[in-house]
C-alpha cells in the first residue's frame, strides 16, 4: 500500500478507499516515507502541543516587550477585557487571546512551533487550545486535529507556498487558517471532504492578503493578522459542516492562492515597502522609541 499523496485529490482518494480520516492517512504516510514509528509520531505531536500551550501561557502570565518594541502585553490586556465587552463570545474570545499571545511569545524570542511559519504560529494554537477548552474532547482528538492540519500544510507547501516573501500573508496566515479550519472539521467529526472544503473556504476568505510588516519585523500587523486567521478557521469550519460555501476544490484553491500571491506587487511581499509598513504613523524612518509610543497609544 502506497500512502504517499501529491495533492488533495489523492489524499481524499486514500481516505475514501480506506475509510480513514485525513489524520490517519497522514500518520501512515509519515510511517512509510518518514520512517517514523507511530508512538514516535505521537510523541513529537505531544511535544509540539506542549510548546504551543506554553507559548500561549507565557505571554499571558509574563507579558514582555517584543524585540522590535512594537508589541507586547496585548494578550493580557484582552484577557482583562470586561466580559460584557467580549462580544465574540467565550470560544472566539479565547482564540483571539491565544493568537495574540503566541505572536507575542514569538516576537519576544520565546519558543514557538512554526506552523507552518513563525509569523503565522499563533493560528493553530489559538484554534486548538480554545477548542479544547470549550469542547469536551480527548487529547487524542486534538492530536488528530494537529496531524490533519499537517496534511493540509504539506500540500500547501508542496503545491503552493507558505512564504510571505513569495506569496504574501495569504501564504502564511492564510495557510495556517486553512490548516486550522480542516483540523476543526475533523475534530468535530466532519468528513475528509468537509475538511478540505473548510480549508478552501478559509483560503478564499483571505485571498490576496498582503505581507506588509512594519519595519520588516514580525510584529505589526502580523500579531492581529493571526487573530483573523484563527477566527476565519472557525467560520470556515462551521460553513463547511453545514455544506455551505463556494465548493472550490482545495487543489484549485491552492493554485489560485499561489497565482494571486505571485501577482502581488513586490511591495506587498515581506519587503516592508507597502501596505501597513508605509503607514505614515508607522513610517520606518521614525525612531524606535517614537514608533513604540505610537503603537502603544493605538492599542
Amino acid at each position: 500500500m502506497d500512502w504517499d499523496f501529491k495533492n488533495i485529490e489523492e489524499l481524499l482518494k486514500l481516505c475514501r478507499e480506506n475509510d480513514l480520516p485525513i489524520s490517519e492517512v497522514m500518520i501512515n504516510r509519515e510511517m512509510q516515507l518518514g520512517g517514523m514509528r507511530r508512538d514516535a509520531i505521537i510523541d513529537q505531536i505531544d511535544t509540539r502541543l506542549r510548546v504551543m500551550n506554553i507559548a500561549v501561557d507565557r505571554a499571558i502570565s509574563e507579558p514582555s516587550k517584543s524585540m522590535g518594541g512594537l508589541i507586547g502585553g496585548e494578550a493580557s490586556k484582552l484577557s482583562a477585557l470586561d466580559e460584557s465587552k467580549a462580544v465574540c463570545g467565550p470560544i472566539i474570545h479565547t482564540a483571539i487571546i491565544n493568537a495574540l499571545a503566541v505572536a507575542e511569545t514569538n516576537a519576544s524570542m520565546g519558543v514557538i512551533v512554526a506552523a507552518p511559519t513563525a509569523g503565522s504560529a499563533g493560528v493553530l494554537p489559538a484554534v486548538l487550545m480554545s477548542f479544547y477548552e470549550y469542547h469536551d474532547i480527548d487529547m487524542d482528538v486534538m492530536r488528530n486535529g494537529l496531524i490533519n492540519a499537517g496534511a493540509i500544510g504539506y500540500i500547501l507547501t508542496r503545491n503552493g507556498s507558505v512564504a510571505g516573501a513569495e506569496a504574501g500573508c495569504q501564504a502564511e496566515v492564510g495557510s495556517a487558517s486553512a490548516m486550522a479550519a480542516s483540523a476543526l472539521v475533523e475534530m468535530l467529526g466532519g468528513t475528509p471532504e468537509q475538511c478540505c472544503d473548510a480549508a478552501s473556504i478559509a483560503l478564499s476568505n483571505l485571498l490576496g492578503l498582503a505581507c506588509d510588516p512594519v519595519r520588516g519585523l514580525v510584529e505589526v500587523p502580523c500579531q492581529t493578522r493571526n487573530t483573523i486567521g484563527a477566527v476565519g478557521a472557525y467560520t470556515a469550519a462551521e460553513l463547511a459542516l453545514a455544506n455551505v460555501g463556494p465548493h472550490i476544490p482545495l487543489d484549485e484553491m491552492i493554485q489560485i492562492t499561489y497565482d494571486v500571491g505571485r501577482a502581488l506587487p513586490e511591495s506587498l511581499r515581506e519587503t516592508a515597502k507597502g501596505g501597513c509598513a508605509v503607514a505614515p504613523s508607522m513610517c520606518a524612518s521614525c525612531s524606535k522609541e517614537a514608533a513604540w509610543q505610537r503603537a502603544r497609544s493605538m492599542m
Partner: peptide, 18 residues
C-alpha cells in the same frame, strides 16, 4: 525534497523568524 509532517508542524524554535 521529502516534506514530512514535522517540516510543516515545526520547527520548534525561538522566535521571531524562521
Amino acid at each position: 525534497n521529502y516534506i514530512g509532517l514535522f517540516d510543516v508542524i515545526g520547527p520548534i524554535m525561538v522566535g521571531p523568524s524562521s
